[in-house]
Amino acid sequence: MIPPSFEYHRPSTVDEAVGLLSSLGSEAKILAGGHSLLPMMKLRFAQPEHLVDINRIPELKGVRVVGDDIVIGAMTSENAVIADPVLNEKVPLLPEAAKLIADPQVRNRGTIGGDIAHGDPANDHPALALACDAVMTIAGPNGKRQVPASEFFLGTYWTALEESDILTEITVKAFPPGAGYSYKKLKRKTGDWATAACAVVIAMSGGAVSHIRITLTNLGPTALRAHEAESILMGQHVSDALIRQAAEQAMEICDPAEDLRGDAEYKTAMAGQMVQRAIHDALSKAS
C-alpha cells in the first residue's frame, strides 16, 4: 500500500505554511504526525496533490505557560504530552489519557493537534479538549483567531478549520486546586480506539460539587459534552444513586455508530459504565 503521488513541501514557519496552503488551495493537505493521514492516503480515502509537512516548524512544538494559560503547540507529540512536567502538574488528565492512545511508536509521531484537527469522533483528544475547556488557536490567510473547543467539533471529519487554516495551539487553564480527573476508556486491545470512553474533571467545595465536566469519546458524530449529566451532580453532595442517575442521563445523548466494536445498544451501555467509573475515579483523586 503506497500513497498516491503528491508534491511534498516543507515550510519552516507558520506564515510560510499558511502562504503555501492558500496558494495551493483545496488540493493541499497538512502532514502532521501522518498516523491518520498516511493510512487514509494508502486506502485512497484521501488523495491530496500536495502535502505541506509542518514537522519542521519549531514554533508549533512544546508546552509554554503564559500567565494563567497553558499553551500546547499543535505539533507536540503524544509522548511529549505524557512527559511534559507542566501538563503533569497542572492538567494531569492530558498526559494520563495520552498513555491510552495507540502505542509507543505511534505516540512518537502522532500529535495532539493532528488528533484534534482530524475530526474523527473515535479520537481521544476531542473529548479531552472539551473536558479541559480548551481554546483552539487557528492561523489562516486572514490572520489568527481563537475558537473554543465547544464550537470546534462540527461533525464527523468536520471541524471549524477552513481550507487553508492551521491549528497552531491548544490553550487550557490549570485545573482548579484539588480537582480530580479521570479518563476511562474501554478498548479491545492496545492501540485500539475506544468502544466507549469518558473524561471527567471534578472539583469540590464544602463537600459539594463546585465544577464538573463529563465528556464522551466515540459515542456520537463528534465528541460529546454531557451537560445534563453534569447538572445532576453540580452543587450536590455526591452519592452512588446520583452518579448512576448522571450516567443514565449521559447515555441519553449517545448515538454511536455500529461497528466491529459493537452495536449502538452495547456501546451506550458501556458509556454508562465508563461515566460511572470515571466519576468514581475522579472523586477519589479530588480533595
Binding site: 500500500m1 501522518g34 498516523h35 498516511l38 509522548n79 502505542d103 509507543p104 505511534v106 512518537n108
Partner: peptide, 29 residues
C-alpha cells in the same frame, strides 16, 4: 501489516522508535 499496528517495520529515527510503514522517506531528510 502496513497499517502501523504490528511494529515489524520499527526503526530508530533521531533517537525515537518509529513505524517505517507510516513515515515518508522524504521526511527523513
Amino acid at each position: 501489516c502496513e497499517t502501523s499496528h504490528c511494529g515489524a517495520c520499527t526503526v530508530d529515527i533521531d533517537g525515537e522508535s518509529v513505524k517505517a510503514c507510516t513515515h515518508l522517506a522524504v521526511q527523513c531528510d
